[in-house]
Amino acid sequence: MNKPASFANWKLFWKRWGVGLSVAGVIIAAIAYYYARSPQATEAVLASTLRQSVPLVLGALCGLLGERAAVINIGIEGQMLMAAFVGFLVNVYTGNLLLGVLAGIAVGALLGLLLAFMSVTLKIDQIIGGTVINILAIGLTGYFYKVGLSGHGKLNAIPLGPLAKIPLLGPVLFNNPPITYTAIILVFVVHYVLFYTPWGLRTRAVGEHPRAADTLGINVYLVRYVNVVVGGALAGLAGAYLSLEAVGSFERLMTNGRGFVALAVMIFGKWTPLGSWGAALLFGFASAIQTQLQFGGKVNIPPQFIGMLPYLLTIIVLAGFVGRARPPAADGIPYEKEG
């Protein structure tokens, strides 16, 4: 009697995890193959994949926190840019990297507050509200940017003791700068908050059926405000990553569309933190491969075409997955209290 049941269980298990396991298997096999052939290049590409994915996964977390509460945030790009700039400025004038990162987070949260004010309180069209933030960020960073400012260093990699000595895994996973570690932790934190806490349940209720949530005594506006502001803080951290961890300086328009790519990452990840992380790694890989192709010198493709890779990938992902993934039901619709 036991046998068929366990067989059914196994079938169920395969149905649920089969695709994921197969993909993981293929990826691990590919990594092993390339690692055997050229360990150094493989390590470099994988480490770069993880780091390139950081601003994307943080941006995607920002986007999904907002959208789970039905606020579309198209201003992630602007929040990142502004945070990158202010974080850099604080570093220039205080010489303190941590203060710079905190300033970046604060600025991101502040712009999140502005977006929440526009979309929740004023009920402006959310896409226009986000566009306001983007244009504002381009203008303000351009106006206050002075050529020749130089920061004081950047956040360096912190090897995690003996873990960092493990071949392949060590240099890829356990020898990263702080924001990279933080981003990975945040993926799981947001996952936990969203699916295992009362706050997460409220957030999802507000995103799916705000009227019902309201009837149950959930403060719809408050939930939206908090989620968008916290999301903004995450976008701010992504900005700080760009100027204080990845480069150590600020350039005009340095976000380069990452805020928008992050939205595609979020959609590809079906509005879940873990899914977004996977999607962000895929995009990170596209960027990492880019550098390899550019400087590997094996293929003769114009650099401009290699540079288009992440953007083309975004379009393909959107075209292929938007119809199948279901956004929160109330996504993008301002909530009007009754009576």
Partner: peptide, 16 residues
């Protein structure tokens, strides 16, 4: 670049 800032503010106030 102040013109960009003013422009963003215009957009904000027209939308709001």
């Amino acid at each position: 670049e102040i013109t960009d800032v003013v422009q963003a503010l215009m957009l904000f106030f027209v939308a709001a």
